[in-house]
Amino acid sequence: MGWFTDEEVRLWATLFVSVCVQALPFLVLGVVISGLIATFVSPDLVQRIVPKRSVLAVPTAGLAGLALPGCECGSVPIAGRLVAAGTPPAAALTFLLAAPAINPVVLVSTAVAFPNDGRLVLARFLASFIAAVAVGTWWARRRGGTLLKSKQHVDTHETGRWDRFVDVASRDLVHAGGYLVVGAMAAATLQLIVPRSILDAVAENELYSILMFAGLAVLLSICSEADAFVAAGLPQFSLTSRLVFLVVGPVIDLKLIAMHTGVFGRRFAMVFVPVTLTIAVISAVVIGQILL
């Protein structure tokens, strides 16, 4: 190994295994819920529960994100099964984006990390919610909701309900889990090679720091429950640029891109990722200007 020292290899292994171990419980919770959706939620039921018009369905789905405590890794298979069960794709996507960003656990950890900046918690909630609803609305209008197909297989051969549930949950687990591992490897590698000197070089310029934090959020792939502490540890940057970090990270990062590609397909990811990234940055900057 000419390139890396033993210490660096060990550190890479630590980072890689930690991201996997941390994500696994949330992934398992996610596939248990996705298995339940596939087993018990029929398209008829979805038709009755979800509002017909996307003007109502999208914000409702965003608020539903409040109810799923956890990190982002669990919400991808759930959104996939919601689509398979007949949920309008725009609403499922809004849920996918909102759940990891605005749930109570994330907001509380943000408040703990920024004890004297209560407005930052509010700003995070608003900017993330607005970004999720904006992406959902955009999808409903531009795409008419037809292009999104879940690649999760529904061709289960099981007949009993319990067998069906375990089969679907296991399928989703190896599916989303495999892509999670790809993302975890990329995140561990980038954490190791992004030089810290980049941080100091751009702190002077607000535009550069906003762009840098958007990039860091994608590359570092830190859990939404933990990112506030990382942001709090970089006080030389403006609150707005750090808000960008908190709003972008839970919706787009390396492990999520890998999972989006795996669960919804490459064509979807190539449109969804840049649009969501742009909307999230704009939403964070605007809310930051108003509130912070």
């Binding site: 399928r171 495999g178 975890a184």
Partner: peptide, 23 residues
């Protein structure tokens, strides 16, 4: 098929744990 081939990657963390023994 009971799932996509990418699922095999889930054994990578185990291999890394055993071979590199991160501390």
């Amino acid at each position: 098929s009971a799932g996509p081939g990418v699922g095999w990657l889930l054994i990578l963390p185990l291999l890394v744990l055993v071979s590199i023994a991160p501390t």
